[in-house]
């Protein structure tokens, strides 16, 4: 059982070049007797795998925070982490190989009646992709994503209309080479006063505050960005080219597109819908096969199944 109260702070052991005070503080925080720190870390790990913490207010375990939805689970995880030598990797393994992690997100009336907001994790909460995941996933299915690791931050194109809102528009944002523009969003330059509209729109964290939990809003402006925005159209075109490379026949290309965005075998009704769309774009709007395929990709990149994880 973990202690409820923090242990007394040990005394510092000065050395020739240090007062040893920070080390004493670090040892005190991570002391096996300090249950709070282990619970906080275990809760954080859980939050990032399961979508929310066992304590929902993961920045606040104090009086103004939320109570754990399952205090025994949290205590057990904290103890396990101690037992595993504080290894975060071991904790990831424990969490992602658990039965709870493998639960479906499908509804169950009997469970909903008892626990409507899923406090007890009887299912996996469906979630929208985060802002970074939205951009990375689009680049991934279009085939453009550059998975290079490390290095300086990059500057994907910023819409001119957004640059114009800066007090020095010409100096407000940098420029990266085409292969660097498509790096993972993790590497996109963070400027406090100028964030990419696609990312802000999908609830990227505010640049000024510690953000324990992201919002996941549903807004018409998100639809405008993904439907009309330059990035969406550019990547839809790129994805269409990719489908042309990946498969020969139109049907096979449509199937491939569906499979890329849904990560499951394409169903016949999905395919039929897209086949009909291509026919209409061709016959009624005079689009070439290549243009029609771009439109199909735009629709696919906007689909709920792409943006939400079951």
């Amino acid at each position: 059982m973990l202690a409820a109260c923090a242990p007394p702070l040990g005394s510092a052991a000065p050395t020739a070049d240090s007062t040893g005070r920070r080390l004493a503080l670090a040892k005190w925080i991570t002391s096996p007797d300090n249950g709070l720190a282990w619970r906080v870390v275990a809760n954080r790990l859980w939050q990032h795998h399961f979508g929310r913490g066992i304590v929902r207010s993961s920045n606040d375990f104090g009086r103004l925070g939320d109570l754990p939805t399952d205090s025994r689970l949290l205590d057990w995880l904290a103890s396990e982490m101690l037992t595993r030598g504080g290894s975060i990797k071991a904790m990831h393994r424990l969490l992602v190989t658990s039965a709870t992690y493998r639960m479906q997100s499908s509804p169950n009336q009997a469970c909903s009646d008892v626990d409507p907001i899923n406090d007890l994790f009887w299912r996996f909460d469906r979630r929208r992709l985060t802002a970074e995941e939205v951009r990375d996933s689009i680049l991934s299915v279009s085939g453009a994503l550059n998975l290079q690791v490390g290095g300086p931050t990059v500057f994907p194109p910023m819409p001119a209309a957004v640059l114009a809102t800066a007090s020095r528009p010409e100096d407000a944002w940098g420029k990266s080479t085409p292969d660097q523009e498509v790096r993972r969003t993790l590497y996109v330059h963070t400027k406090r006063s100028l964030q990419m509209p696609l990312l802000v729109g999908f609830d990227q964290a505010d640049t000024d505050n510690s953000c324990p939990v992201r919002f996941a809003t549903v807004q018409p402006t998100q639809a405008l960005t993904l439907w009309n925005g330059e990035f969406a159209h550019q990547e839809a075109a790129r994805m269409a080219k990719r489908l042309e490379r990946d498969a020969g026949e139109l049907d096979a290309r449509l199937r491939r597109g569906l499979e890329l965005v849904t990560q499951r075998p394409a169903r016949d009704d999905d395919l039929a819908r897209l086949q009909q769309l291509v026919a209409e774009l061709r016959d009624e709007f005079g689009k070439s096969d290549a243009e029609a395929l771009q439109r199909v990709c735009l629709v696919l990149l906007n689909s709920n199944e792409f943006l939400y994880l079951d």
Binding site: S106, P107, V218, Q222, N304, Y308
Partner: peptide, 22 residues
């Protein structure tokens, strides 16, 4: 397409809200 996806997931108001947002 989104309505087809909604089948079996109708309890999730976010999905319906996203359809409406378009």
């Amino acid at each position: 397409q989104n309505h087809a996806h909604l089948r079996g997931r109708a309890d999730d108001s976010n999905l319906a809200a996203r359809i409406a947002s378009y």
